[in-house]
Design a protein around this nucleic acid. Structure first.
Lengths: 353, 353
DNA sequence: TTGTAGGCGTTATCAC
DNA sequence: GTGATAACGCCTACAA
């Protein structure tokens, strides 16, 4: 008589085997489909599978061999629009390559981030994608390098997505986008419109790779055009709307000479816009405003925001693709994704004096 | 001599045991910390753990007993703001309860959704959270009910987050928010402002639980105030900005009597706003506009959008909390989260005739 | 306090 | 084509 699994218990290959009168090995072969099995046997097994509503145990499979078919991505939080798009890309590519996706949020805490990497090593994730700019702090970079080596040793791969490489001796895959180039192009655009006094509102602490790159592009453009620079960094540590609002108010209180504002992100720009409007300043007639990221919000602002486009979804896809299909023994990989200016309505010529 | 694991291989408890001169069991006990071990032994073991850079194998642990400590959430996509917030809540609560989070996207495809539920059963996820409104299609509901039973049998739990229960005999946890109540309150608000001809722009096919609920609230408010209703549903199947834009253009082409528009979502409202502005209509002077969801976008529109607030993050948290800490043998659970009107600047009295 | 034996569900290996 | 058997790495009895 076919063995009936205890009700309320999950059936196993053994149950299927018993129920279809074959060995567990044969059941495994039918399911894997990578080994010759007679058509008749296959049919019997499949019937039992359906009747028992059997599904394989992924943990057991991973243990026996085969690996976990899992990719992890670690992100500050899921609600930042840019993060969400990267996540979307990661999930998409992971699914396309037959992998499942683990998500974790670090809320920007480096210690938590390293903890999570450790957790992912326990989980045997095939790739660990770290999303978002990170700190350049020395001890942090060292610990991350060590984590990269540990992952490498267990056949996994650390991927840095949207931040610079750790060093050439760290086994990691890096997929960046061109913060500096985009900021350079945007600044040049403003200069070409006639602006000579541009305020850069870069929220966040120094040493943060993303803002640093953008600021560098801003500076380089000034140098290239032989222009003095009036950069205005704020002490805010977040990239949110509120910090853009506050920074603009402070700026307006102490300096009204600038004719354009370059906000470090679109979200910051949305806060800037509110402050400008409250001060009775029109955009772009009185002051031009540009952002960075080109998230959907950019088109919802009034006026629609001129900004730098970054293909975040592609960033995520590339990260997974490279991590999973890299050349054997290629120690480090590095890809740079281009960015470009999207001209909308928030920037124009400076007001005539 | 202590056994050195082959370089490039992951160390196991055995390696740690050999390296510290104790048995594998003792290592396990030290790591679990739930069993008395002499201080000296513990120290030796921990030292070996550090030296070998050992981490436990989560798959093996799950297999031996203990379970996977994993929660899955399935969502249309990660970039919709509402979805992102629910995901944030799910991840947050999962982490708080010591679980890891698997994400999958279904892109609104019911078949894919059921496939994913199956995958999660293989993964032994402790809870499977289905996020977002779903179709009321009979065969779909039946298959989902069957999936719920299958999950229940393996000790897991299906959670419906933001959609109505499958039926009282399905072992599932449901966490909804009050679509009908919020729409009722908002419609009443518009009526109290003096509006008598309100267009409801509900993108999406009939049978979609979220829109249906909102439309029901819209209708009930009209009934309660003894007002005839002029509902306008569009044929668009998406909830995006574009569908709001198109729907509004069609609406304007055939009917200009309405004095207010109730958009099914904030994102739809953003498209409506563009179309209105293009037509030279001022908001709220010429026509009032309200939305639903209260995503950050609502505050970035000009004028800031009057809308219905939904605490999506709490929705996600509640989903996980209930799934993990339910009473034993409670077949079905049902929670409703409240919604409320947020008054901003996009709705006012109708223009005097 | 510590060690030994067996099992979790699957797949790889080796026989038949 | 099919079936036993031994891993995989951990944990929970049961002994000592």
């Amino acid at each position: 008589m076919a063995r009936q699994p205890t009700s309320g218990e999950r059936p196993t290959v053994k149950d299927v085997a018993a129920s279809s009168g074959v060995s567990a090995t044969t059941v495994s072969r039918v399911l894997a489909g990578n080994y010759p099995v007679s058509a008749e046997t296959r049919a019997r097994v499949m019937k039992a599978v359906r009747e028992l509503d059997y599904v394989i145990n992924a943990q057991a499979r991973a243990l026996g061999g085969g690996g976990t078919k899992t990719v992890a991505f670690i992100v500050h939080d899921l609600v930042g629009p840019a993060f969400a798009y990267v996540g979307q890309g990661v999930e998409q590519q992971a699914t396309a390559e037959g992998r499942l996706c683990l998500v974790c949020t670090s809320h920007g805490d480096p210690d938590r981030e390293l903890e999570i990497v450790e957790l992912m090593r326990e989980q045997q994730a095939e790739a660990v994608v770290l999303v978002g700019g990170g700190s350049g702090n020395r001890s942090y970079v060292d610990r991350l390098t060590q984590a990269a080596r540990a992952l490498d040793k267990s056949g996994s791969r650390l991927v840095l997505c949207g931040r610079p490489p750790l060093g050439t001796d760290a086994p990691a895959t890096v997929v960046e986008y061109d913060n500096e180039g985009g900021a350079y192009a945007m600044t040049s655009y403003l200069i070409s419109l006639g602006h000579r006094d541009i305020a850069f509102l870069g929220a966040g602490e120094a040493g943060h790779s993303t803002v640093d790159g953008r600021l560098r592009g801003f500076e380089r453009a000034h140098e290239a055009h032989h222009l003095p620079m009036t950069s205005h960094r704020t002490s805010a540590v977040t990239f949110d709307r509120e910090s853009g609002y506050q920074a603009t108010r402070e700026l307006l209180a102490r300096d009204r000479k600038f004719t354009a504002i370059f906000a470090a992100t679109d979200v910051v720009a949305s806060g800037v816009l509110v402050a400008l409007r409250e001060a009775g300043l029109r955009v772009p007639e009185d002051v031009s405003l540009v952002g960075y990221d080109d998230i959907p919000l950019a088109r919802d602002l009034t006026p629609e925001l001129t900004t730098v486009h970054v293909d975040y979804e592609e960033l995520g896809r590339t990260a997974v693709r490279h991590a999973l299909n890299r050349e054997r023994h290629a120690l480090s990989q590095h890809t740079m994704i281009g960015t470009h200016v999207i001209i909308r309505d928030s920037a124009g010529p400076p007001p005539s004096p």
